[in-house]
Simulated scan of single mutants.
Amino acid sequence: MARTTENPATVAEVTAELAALEEPRIREVNAEHGDDHGVNLTKLRAVAKRLKTQQELARELWETDDSAARLLAILICRPKAFDRAELDTMLRQARTPKVHDWLVNYVVKKNPHAEELRLAWFADPDPVVASAGWALTTERVAKKPEDLDLAGLLDIVEAEMKNAPDRLQWAMNHCLAQIGIEHPEYRPRAIDIGERLEVLKDYPTPPNCTSPFAPTWITEMVSRKEGK
């Protein structure tokens, strides 16, 4: 069992606990989404809650190259403690979707180098790295749009999203939708781009969930915001 911060756990102890939590069915389901671990995330979060923040252990867990260990590392690290070079290296090492998404959302977005990394990653030739740049841009579209060239972003989406690799395409589509949702002056163009490109138009969406098809997504979220 993983110890508390008063009695720090070792990497060997933590990885053994994660291995014991492995469930073949969860691994099977995760594999369908490109992930390669079989640990129930609720149980993984419980381990993180018990361990609390342990930056050095987090670094050591990351270096194991095991996805479950890396997810745990993200939960117990201090996001502001990483320098820019560390985060750039970690992002390029994070090849599975869940590790990549958690690293961007739970660590990079809270780090003082987030804007520098956004600019560096946005046009990176690696589409997975570029998708992180677009995710950080989407965050700014929603929370701090000052100095962003929203029209320019729409130009790039219009020209490149249709044929972008899946993960980059998804990130660009999210940015397109966020521009349409948050900025009424660009809403008609965002909806028009989505309608013409038809990206994710036929994406299977469960009942009571919002479609990722940008025109539908924009219309529904705006309606909710306006209380209609």
Score class of each variant (00 low, 15 high):
Pro188Arg: 15
Leu103Gly: 06
Gln178Thr: 13
Trp134Ala: 04
Ala9Asn: 03
Ile191Ala: 11
Leu71Glu: 07
Ala73Asp: 01
Gln178Met: 09
Glu160Leu: 01
Leu150Asn: 09
Met161Asp: 13
Arg92Asp: 02
Phe122Glu: 05
Tyr186Lys: 05
Phe122Tyr: 08
Ile156Thr: 13
Ala9Thr: 11
Lys110Gln: 10
Ala19Glu: 06
His100Asp: 04
Trp217Asp: 14
Lys201Leu: 07
Ala12Cys: 05
Arg25His: 10
Leu103Ser: 02
His113Asn: 12
Glu146Val: 05
Leu117Trp: 00
Ala81Pro: 03
Cys209Pro: 00
Ala16Val: 03
Lys201Pro: 02
Glu195Thr: 12
Thr210Ser: 09
Glu185Val: 14
Ala19Phe: 06
Arg84Leu: 06
Glu226Arg: 15
Lys52Val: 12
Ala114Ile: 02
Ala164Gln: 14
Val107Tyr: 01
His37Ser: 01
Ile181Gln: 14
Arg25Ile: 09
Cys77Thr: 15
Ala85Trp: 00
Asp202Ser: 15
Glu195Cys: 05
Leu57Ile: 13
Arg78Trp: 01
Ala159Lys: 13
Asn7Gln: 09
Asp88Met: 10
Lys80Val: 10
Lys225Cys: 00
His113Tyr: 11
Asp126Phe: 14
Cys209Leu: 07
Ala151Thr: 10
Lys144Cys: 03
Thr64Glu: 01
Gln93Asn: 12
Met90Leu: 12
Pro165Asp: 01
Ala58Cys: 05
Gly152Gln: 05
Ala19Lys: 12
Leu71Trp: 01
Pro79Val: 01
Ala135Ser: 12
Leu21Pro: 10
Val141Thr: 07
Asn105Tyr: 08
Arg3Asn: 04
Glu115Tyr: 05
Asn163Gly: 10
Val129Pro: 01
Leu117Val: 09
Met161Ser: 13
Val47His: 02
Asp166Trp: 15
Ala171Thr: 13
Glu195Trp: 01
Arg167Thr: 07
Lys52Met: 11
Ile26Met: 07
Lys225Phe: 06
Asp149Thr: 06
Ala151Gly: 12
Pro165Lys: 12
Tyr203Glu: 11
Trp121Ile: 06
Gly38Asn: 02
His33Trp: 15
Ile181Arg: 15
Glu115Trp: 02
Leu51Tyr: 01
Ala2Met: 07
Ala135Thr: 15
Asp65Ser: 12
Asp147Ala: 08
Pro215Asp: 00
Thr219Met: 07
Glu86Ile: 03
Glu28His: 15
Glu158Gln: 13
Lys80His: 10
Arg50Phe: 09
Ser211Ile: 01
Lys80Tyr: 05
Val107Ser: 03
Gln93Glu: 13
Arg187Lys: 09
Ala135Cys: 07
Trp170Ala: 14
Glu22Ser: 12
Ala214Trp: 09
Val107Pro: 06
Arg92Ala: 09
Ala12Gln: 14
Pro24Ile: 08
Thr15Asn: 06
Val128Gln: 14
Asn7His: 07
Glu139Met: 06
Leu103Trp: 00
Ile76Val: 03
Pro206Thr: 08
Pro125Glu: 02
Asp36Pro: 00
His100Leu: 11
Ala73Trp: 00
Arg140Gln: 10
Asn40Ile: 04
Gln54Ala: 14
Arg118Thr: 06
Val29Tyr: 12
Ala171Pro: 14
Pro207Trp: 00
Ala114His: 10
Ile181His: 13
Pro145Asn: 11
Ile191Glu: 09
Thr210Pro: 05
Leu154Asn: 12
Lys201Thr: 03
Pro212Ile: 00
Arg196Glu: 05
Pro207His: 02
Ala19Tyr: 04
Leu72Arg: 03
Val11Lys: 08
Asp35Pro: 04
Ala68Phe: 00
Ala159Tyr: 03
Leu136Glu: 01
